Simulated scan of single mutants.
Amino acid sequence: MSLSAFHINWTKPFTVRHPGAAYAVEPFELLTTALSALYWRKNNGSIRMICDSTAKRYYDTLGLSFLWDDGVYPLLDSIPADINPIAFWAAGKLYALAAMPSPCVMIDTDFIVWKPIAPLLKELSLAAIHREDIMPDIYPGPEAFRQAHGFDLAALDWTVRPFNTALAYFADDDFRMFYTDTAIRFMRSAPDADDVLTYMVFAEQRLLAMCAARRNIPAAALSDLPALFDGAQQGYFTHIWGFKQQMRDSNVLYHDFCSRCAARLMRDFPQEAEHLAGVSPLSQYFS
């Protein structure tokens, strides 16, 4: 079974935090993006990038748009101005998902799927990479969302564990639209949201599980957090998220990681790696 996937890049949070700065992506993120896209194409199906015009110009200028065989679509310029880009820094994922017909797989650019995953998705309408524990500092109760006006928090099941959406599979269009409509309505209800973590992970991850519970959608986690780190998920997935700060704190770790990514690309995708070696921010890691 061929599965359509998409990456997302909404640059407005960057431009708001760094006014006047030229947009750029760190080399390790570009390399994991390449691995993520190319391995998906090799083993699972087509992949596209849904982004804004700034991101499209950036990828085009670097010569990286070839990574997405299904194209690069600057759809996120139309995100409404009342979406707070600081509190809702991943809002681009929800708007991209709203535009992508099911069945589809949403993948973060720092997430790599090494093997075919269709066998893991049989008879599922919804899947995500793992569940999250309900830790009060990250997933607080409804009393924490005082800036959300007119959104019915009382109608939700606050006991269901959130889904991590570094990878998420949506087989049902009606549910996909119900979830994205609900999440977008929440974000638009809180233009003055005053927390840079809890509002976003509620909209993106906790509401996904809450919406699935409300609609009785067959849903599953494809792994769990310990398995992602100790290899017990049998080599299916790699998520770089937890390693990013360590790399930023150590030039040795940073260079070693990027060099290993480049070596993997040269081994498994020699033609594409030759192209990537000519990309200015990446060339040093291919030498």
Rank of each mutant, 00 (worst) to 15 (best):
D174K: 11
I134T: 06
T238N: 12
D256C: 04
L38N: 10
L67C: 10
T54N: 08
D110S: 06
D181R: 15
Q147E: 14
A203R: 05
S283P: 00
Y58R: 07
R57G: 14
L31E: 08
L97K: 02
W89S: 11
V279P: 01
D181C: 13
T182P: 08
D110Q: 03
L156M: 09
P281F: 08
P19E: 04
H275P: 00
E26Q: 14
M49P: 08
Q246F: 05
A154V: 03
R161E: 13
M187P: 11
A91Y: 01
P140E: 02
A219E: 12
R215W: 11
D69L: 03
K12F: 08
I217C: 05
S283Y: 04
R48M: 11
D157R: 04
D108R: 02
K56S: 09
P116K: 11
L265T: 01
T159Q: 15
L276H: 06
C258I: 01
D152N: 12
D82V: 00
E123L: 04
L126F: 05
K244T: 07
F66D: 05
M135F: 01
S259A: 12
L208Q: 04
L222A: 10
N251Y: 06
D181Q: 15
D195N: 15
L30E: 09
F14M: 03
G20L: 10
D174H: 13
F178H: 14
H239F: 05
R41W: 07
F151M: 06
A193H: 10
W114P: 12
A21E: 15
S189G: 05
F237L: 03
S4V: 10
W241G: 15
D70G: 14
P13I: 00
I107Y: 02
M247G: 05
R248N: 14
Y58N: 07
P13E: 00
A24P: 08
H18S: 12
F111D: 04
D230G: 01
Y58I: 05
E132G: 01
A118K: 11
A55V: 06
H239C: 11
A168K: 10
W40M: 07
F178A: 15
R41T: 15
M177R: 15
I8T: 15
F178T: 12
S287D: 12
Q233Y: 06
F163Q: 09
A24L: 13
